[in-house]
């Protein structure tokens, strides 16, 4: 007699994704709980944290924005190893507009978001035909190139960076701005993913020739996705510049490229919630580990290895399965 694990979907799902039959408040709560969790968590719980941890969460949100932006590209089949390109471009645009030309914050952030998104899409336009590792290589090189360009030509403050950037008027504006932006990006992208548009961009990843034979210009769609992902990343950069009152070469540093990918790997790729969850584990974890001093990176690395080996599907997919399915052991006779 052997046993087998049987998995049964909770009976709430009707036929396909996104169509639900709700019969009771309990079922509504069942659906609403995971969706409300980030909203309530970010807007109602975090404000009661100490100032230090609020700042940690704000910087987590920056990484989470980059991770969500990374996931959108990943869904379309564009592997980005250079999220720092978005961060750096956003930071430098906002910084230069504010510090050099005196634009106020309420103009610099929107301009950096939209303009930066356009600029990033434009820069990656020539390599849009590349896929997988080839596209990834170019995205890896671009931010490195930019930081060397700034260093060599001494434009935009050179190695010193741009200082004297306005900070946000007060802590609460700054805090609410980043949390709301994160929620908007997260739920906006989720909505996009569920629409027919999302089906097409995921189709481009799956099987771009079939999408082309459906009469859809995949390069135009990839450009749109690059703009969207770029704009979200550039917003994170613009926010970062005003938050730190500094924009400089560290904006193009590898941290901003690698951490979003690590977050996606830990949290689970293939959904926006995964990278979000990943970022909210990794960044605070790295803060907690500061107590260990020099050993911090060792433990951080060990955690990454264990997380990825132990739950290769990602934490989010694991939790979701436990939440949506009833598991039980049933006996099977041979």
């Amino acid at each position: 007699m052997t046993k087998r694990k049987e998995r049964i979907d909770r009976g709430i799902k009707v036929r396909s994704d996104g169509i639900y039959a709700l019969n009771s408040y309990r079922e509504i709560l069942y659906l609403a709980f995971p969706r409300l969790l980030p909203v309530v968590g970010l807007l109602a719980v975090v404000p009661f944290f100490s100032l230090y941890w609020q700042e940690v969460i704000a910087s987590t949100a920056i990484y989470a924005l980059l991770a969500v932006s990374w996931e959108l590209l990943y869904m379309t089949g564009l592997i980005s190893l250079g999220q720092s390109l978005f961060y750096g471009v956003g930071a430098y645009i906002a910084g230069a507009l504010n510090a050099s030309w005196g634009f106020p914050i309420y103009l610099t952030v929107p301009i950096a978001t939209v303009g930066g998104g356009l600029l990033c899409a434009l820069m990656l336009l020539p390599v849009l035909r590349l896929r997988g590792i080839y596209f990834a290589m170019v995205t890896l090189v671009l931010p490195l190139m930019f930081s060397r360009l700034v260093e060599a030509t001494r434009i935009l403050g050179g190695t010193n960076g741009l200082t004297g950037i306005d900070s946000f008027p007060n802590h609460w504006i700054s805090f609410c701005l980043i949390q709301i932006a994160l929620l908007v990006a997260f739920f906006g992208f989720r909505r996009l993913e569920g629409s027919d548009y999302g089906l097409v961009i995921k189709g481009i990843n799956d099987n771009d020739r079939a999408i082309m034979s459906s009469g859809i210009n995949i390069y135009w769609y990839k450009t749109q996705v690059l703009f969207l992902a770029g704009a979200v990343g550039c917003f994170a950069g613009a926010y970062g510049a005003h938050h730190d009152m500094f924009a400089g070469m560290p904006g193009f540093a590898l941290d901003y490229s690698i951490l979003p990918i690590a977050a996606a790997a830990v949290g689970g790729m293939g959904s926006f919630a995964g990278p979000l969850l990943g970022a909210f584990i990794l960044v605070p974890l790295s803060e907690i580990l500061r107590a260990l001093g020099a050993l911090r990176i060792v433990f951080y690395g060990l955690f990454l290895v264990f997380a990825v080996v132990g739950l290769p599907e990602g934490l989010f997919h694991f939790i979701r399965r436990k939440y949506e399915q009833i598991e039980r052991w049933v006996e099977v006779d041979k």
Binding site: L199, I211, S214, I216
Partner: peptide, 10 residues
């Protein structure tokens, strides 16, 4: 859903 990209095409 396989037909949606075609139906979504310009």
């Amino acid at each position: 859903k396989n037909l949606i990209p075609s139906l979504f095409s310009p």
